[in-house]
Amino acid sequence: MNLSLPVHTLEKKHLLSISDLSVPEIEGIFKTADSFLDLSSRSVRKVPSLRGKIIVNLFYEPSTRTRTSFEIAGKRLSADVINITTTQSSVVKGESLLDTVRTIEALGADGIVIRHSASGVPQWIAKQVGCHVINAGDGLREHPTQALLDLFTIQKRKKKLSGLTVAIVGDVLHSRVARSNIIAMQMMGMNVRVVGPPTLIPKEARKWGLEVFHTLREGLDQADVIMLLRLQLERQASGYIPSIEEYSRLFGLSPEKLSWAAPDAIVLHPGPVNRGIEIQGEEMFADRSAVLDQVHHGVAIRMAILYLLMAGGRPEEDNRAPA
């Protein structure tokens, strides 16, 4: 590709990893998401771009906000959105993942939005089917739309990305949100720190070019953005942390600890929040919290992704399984 040409489209079939995207592509996605933001204030909150297309939300892990966000995004683009959650599907009868996705495709799906507890499942599915595949979180690996909406939220609040210092606090080791964000943030020229107990920080963190801190006070010093991660409560039972109470005392954010960061620092959390553990007294710094912005922006980002991947011609019509 000629790099001097400006990028006008996202010439991709799938969104599997944030590292599939270039900086101009991410900027184009943000520009596109911008024009979807106003949609919620319109009298008709739909556009016809995906009329007649079918999107299947295939979720092998519980999710409320990501699944709902994708569902609203698809519906606002006029697509038909079908939700399959594994507790109600043939998966409980022992149908294999491959049979399930092939069946979904044969039923006429144009796109599959998948969440799975095993890393790499979206990549594998993309090789098996002719329709679009969008990663809505795979195992410990990636959650690319979450990273996009987080960066979009930061850019909206801070009016820039490059040069900002962001502190990612908590269970970085098990967080696909952190992984996708770290890749995207470094791509956009941000300084990324990870903050947490040594047991929850990946050993390779310094090799990835991250600053590592094990105390919140050092980690938050001069930070422009604080990204709190959800603490899976079963981490205590697995021995990663001595107790939830201690974690909360050392790494939970409170109005007092927020003052250690830059005076205009903003706070993000991918949700769902364990109130009293990752955040205490959020009502005291509501103006600094971007958590609800993240939810609002998530729909716009997912609309942008669905539109850019799916509004064009049907992919590889010939490869589709016979109906």
């Binding site: 489209t9 520009k31 024009s35 979807f36 016809p48 771009s49 942008a304 539109y307 509004a311 064009g312």
Partner: peptide
């Protein structure tokens, strides 16, 4: 762009400009 009738016969849809 979102209202075009030829999106489905074009290769890839363009990034949007803000209305």
């Amino acid at each position: 762009t979102l209202y075009r009738d030829d999106l489905a016969i074009r290769a890839a849809p363009p990034f949007l400009r803000e209305s």
